[in-house]
C-alpha cells in the first residue's frame, strides 16, 4: 500500500479545478468542487469515494466533458474534454447510475448505440454488440426491449454498451447502486475482470467502502466540497490486514 500520487503520463489530469454552481460570489452560489488536483494513470482503476453531495458526480461530469469547470483545467489524454467534446468520440464511455437504456431500442440496438456514433458498418456493429451481450450473459435477449428485462439485465446491457465502443477511458457513476447486493456483487466481479482484461483507465464513483476496495486499485476519498481527504493505492498483493487498515482509515475520514 502506498500513499499515491502516481508518476508518469496521466490519462486524466485535474489541476486546481473548482466548480461553482450559480454566480460566483453571490449568496446563492454553491461550491461543489474546490481547487482539486488529481491524476489518474493509464490503466488505473480509481474509486472515488465520498458522502452524498461531496461533488463526486460534478467531477465525473467535468471529466466526461458534460460540465465546464469554473476554475482550473481538466485534461483527458492531454485534451480538454469540454472544449474538445467531439474529439473524444469513441475514446470515452460512461456507465451511469441508472441503466439509461433507450426504451424504444432492443437490447442489441442499445449496445450498438456508441458504434453507430462511430459510423461502424451495420454488420460489424451487430456482431460486436452480440459479442458483448454474450460476454455479459445476455445471449438470447438481444431482441428484448428494456421493459422486458430485469434491473440487473438492463444494467448489464448498459455495461455492454460502454464496453462495445472499446473506449480507453471508462467513467462509472455508481452503476450498481440500484441493484440488490447479490446481483451487484456478480456484476462488480464481471466488471473488474472486463476492465482489467481490456486495459481500461477507469474512474468509478461509489459511496460504498467495500465496493471501492473490491473495484479500485486506488481509492480517493473526498470531503465536501470535493477536496482530497485520503488517497491510497494498493494491488492484488496487498494483504487482508492492510486492506482492513485502509478500510478503517477511510471510515475515519468519512466520519470526520
Amino acid at each position: 500500500m502506498t500513499a499515491a500520487t502516481p508518476a508518469g503520463q496521466a490519462a486524466i489530469h485535474l489541476d486546481g479545478v473548482s466548480k461553482v454552481f450559480g454566480k460566483v460570489g453571490s449568496a446563492g452560489a454553491f461550491r461543489a468542487v474546490d481547487n482539486l488536483n488529481l491524476e489518474v494513470r493509464p490503466g488505473q482503476m480509481l474509486a472515488l469515494l465520498g458522502k452524498t453531495g461531496c461533488g463526486k458526480s460534478t467531477i465525473f461530469n467535468m471529466v466526461a466533458g458534460l460540465t465546464e469547470p469554473t476554475k482550473g483545467t481538466v485534461r483527458v489524454d492531454g485534451r480538454d474534454p469540454f472544449a474538445e467534446f467531439n474529439s473524444f468520440r469513441g475514446k470515452m464511455a460512461i456507465v451511469f447510475q441508472g441503466d439509461r437504456l433507450l426504451p424504444w431500442r432492443t437490447a442489441i440496438a442499445n449496445v450498438e448505440l456508441g458504434l453507430e456514433m462511430l459510423d461502424v458498418a451495420v454488420a460489424e456493429r451487430r456482431a460486436t454488440a452480440q459479442l458483448w451481450l454474450s460476454k455479459l450473459g445476455l445471449g438470447g435477449h438481444e431482441n428484448d426491449f428494456p421493459h422486458a428485462l430485469s434491473g440487473g439485465m438492463r444494467q448489464r446491457v448498459s455495461i455492454a454498451r460502454a464496453f462495445a465502443t472499446n473506449a480507453s477511458i471508462l467513467l462509472c457513476d455508481e452503476p450498481f447502486s440500484a441493484l440488490d447486493e447479490s446481483t451487484a456483487g456478480k456484476l462488480r466481479a464481471e466488471f473488474v475482470r472486463l476492465v482489467k482484461e481490456n486495459g481500461k483507465t477507469a474512474i468509478f464513483i461509489t459511496h460504498s467502502i467495500s465496493e471501492a476496495l473490491e473495484i479500485g486499485d486506488r481509492i480517493v476519498v473526498l470531503k465536501r466540497p470535493a477536496e482530497i481527504a485520503y488517497d491510497v493505492s494498493f494491488n492484488s498483493e496487498t494483504s487482508a490486514e492492510e486492506r482492513d487498515t485502509i478500510r478503517s482509515m477511510i471510515g475515519k475520514v468519512l466520519a470526520s
Binding site: A64, L66, F85, N86, F88, R89, G90, M92, A93, I94, F96, G98, R100, L102, L113, G114, E116, M117, T165
Partner: peptide, 21 residues
C-alpha cells in the same frame, strides 16, 4: 434529461442526435 445526457456521452452529430434520441 438522463437519456439525453447518455446519448451526448457518445458525442453524436446533430443529425444522429435527432435520429436516435
Amino acid at each position: 434529461k438522463d437519456l439525453m445526457e447518455m446519448v451526448f456521452s457518445f458525442r453524436p452529430t446533430r443529425m444522429k442526435l435527432f435520429r436516435v434520441m
